[in-house]
């Protein structure tokens, strides 16, 4: 008995549709462990730059436009009462529904699970981001209009109740 790539893909699909977060399957000679990749579990880390990359060859072309600031993505809060709201997808982060409008939330605001806290725009498609947690906003990390990566912390919320 063995598992093909198609079998594993099928099992992954079943897990995806189930209410479970983890699956361990043991068969003759095979142990398969799958864990659901919840956005909340995706901890982004600062990018490692190898020594070789640091010693990049001299740039021959005219200096490129400066790379938009790459804010070192902060690691998850270690305070168990503080939860990160992370970007569910890569895109441009907006704090308010349209330019000039007041932000969805400010530091100190109280949020519930379904409170809209930001918009992430991908090629003009606006995606709302909800808090997913009940509590008080303690920090808003990216600046308005910044490119945020998948899994990047957007807000920190001190959980209540």
């Amino acid at each position: 008995m063995s598992l093909t790539a198609a079998d594993v893909a099928e099992i992954m699909r079943l897990l995806e549709q189930s209410s479970f977060d983890e699956l361990t399957l043991e068969m003759e000679g095979i142990k398969l462990s799958l864990r659901r990749g919840a956005p909340g579990a995706a901890r982004t880390e600062s990018v490692l730059v190898s020594p070789a990359a640091a010693a990049a060859p001299p740039t021959l072309a005219p200096a490129p436009t400066p790379m938009p600031a790459q804010v070192p993505t902060k690691s998850a809060s270690t305070d168990p009462d503080v939860q990160d709201v992370v970007a569910p997808l890569l895109g441009t982060f907006y704090r308010s529904p349209k330019p000039g409008a007041p932000p969805f939330v400010e530091v100190g605001a109280t949020v519930a699970e379904d409170t809209v806290v930001a918009i992430i725009e991908v090629m003009k498609l606006m995606n709302t981001v909800r808090a997913g947690v009940r509590g008080t906003v303690v920090e808003i990390l990216p600046v308005d209009g910044a490119l945020v990566e998948y899994g990047e912390p957007l807000l920190r919320v001190r959980k209540s109740g």
Binding site: G37, P39, S50, A53, L90, G91, E149
Partner: peptide
């Protein structure tokens, strides 16, 4: 590690990352 910059475009599954046309172009523009 070799690239000058890395942007994370989505979860592991290709359909949610490497195969997303709009996300790739947005990442290039951004």
């Amino acid at each position: 590690r070799l690239a000058d910059r890395v942007v994370c475009i989505g979860p592991a599954r290709p359909s949610e990352s490497y195969l997303k046309v709009e996300t790739i172009v947005h990442a290039a523009l951004g």
